[in-house]
Design a protein around this nucleic acid. Sequence first.
DNA 1: ACCTGAACACCGTTCAAGT
DNA 2: ACCTGAACACCGTTCAAGT
Lengths: 230, 230
Amino acid sequence: MFGSSLWSVSAEPVSRRARPAKAPLSRAVIVRTGLRVLDREGLDALTMRRVAQVLDTGAASLYVYVKNRDDLMAAMLDEALGRVRLPTDGSWQERLQLLVANSIEAMSRHEGLALVALGGIPTGLNALLVMDRMLALLKEGGLDDKTAAWAVDLLYLHITVAGAEQAAYNTKKMNEADHIAEVRKLYAELPADRYPLLTSMGDALFSAGDRDRWAIQVLVNGILNTPADR
Amino acid sequence: MFGSSLWSVSAEPVSRRARPAKAPLSRAVIVRTGLRVLDREGLDALTMRRVAQVLDTGAASLYVYVKNRDDLMAAMLDEALGRVRLPTDGSWQERLQLLVANSIEAMSRHEGLALVALGGIPTGLNALLVMDRMLALLKEGGLDDKTAAWAVDLLYLHITVAGAEQAAYNTKKMNEADHIAEVRKLYAELPADRYPLLTSMGDALFSAGDRDRWAIQVLVNGILNTPADR
DNA sequence: ACCTGAACACCGTTCAAGT
DNA sequence: ACCTGAACACCGTTCAAGT
């Protein structure tokens, strides 16, 4: 009875105003959507299905623009690195330290993204730009090519871990003070004969201060004092 | 016709010799089995189901001894760190550098394991032992408590990334030389105006040498030259 | 050419039910 | 007490079929 009318309804052309054209898919749109999903819903929610859903399509459609989930995350990381501000003022050492700090900060904003940088020479255009600027600063500081090259490797590695750690820290559900108190208690209760330092210097272990800034200074000072060719 | 005999067969007691008692489950056995699965079949194969299968049981049985997959992997990491050799000879700097190198090596033997250390103050008994020994060496070197504490943080962070990178490198399916050649080509083909250093100093970027050893030296030198209290 | 429904081959984790 | 079959609520990825 309703068969043919139902059929004709679904065959009827639908006004574009009632059902407006979707924004066309593209790699850039998928990458930005992935970043939004990651930032708003967390790493667990960053699934191909969820990203597709936000774009009002099916997961299969993403594979035209993105090789797989890892490829998507790598692209998201590079997008995030595109937001790094390149310092212009101060001595070369100040600019280098700020560039490293800015890169760490950019990575730390997005849960789990820093980890995809591990195990793989960077190939993203924005990651490479950061590396090129670091090389320029190191050469400005008078380092030889080999030391500068190795230094950039090490600095990028540090950016990755520091970013990952900071991101994990930012995302921790647990109350930070509670967590530290708990670990502190664990350290204090360790057997003192096997862990003499951890049990005895508890206060210093959790001492406040800008550890991130200090770590970057350590790296730069170390690089200046350690030529690659012994 | 065969109904009752089949039924009686399955009800018949089976000799323990024909079907020997399984080794009883325990946290230690599960952790060691996980490590074996990881080393032999890779990170993708490290599933609760696969570990259980090797132990001739169901995945659900593991949850009596292990909170979840992350807990299992954390325990596996600490087990791996239990294999780190603690150096006894040489100056405190030599012993420290060797301890760091040994720790990196231990982590790098097991794909993906280093990553579980990220984002979380270490609490495994073997990780803590490595940290305690590092603290002892730094204090032997005359560092104040605060600098020593921050230094151990930084060194452990470096052990983690370096281990993760090395592990990824060890596990790479692709021919190493081919991969480097590919990246080198990518760098060379970058626009020279935007990437002046990467395009011009290609040789130095891929220069051979012991980068890992150099990186550890950089860290130690930097730590010695950078007190935590400015 | 571009898109997608449906299926494939898995996951981690829980829990009622068994011994 | 200890163990487990089966189910729940998902995954990433592929591909034949549609428009």
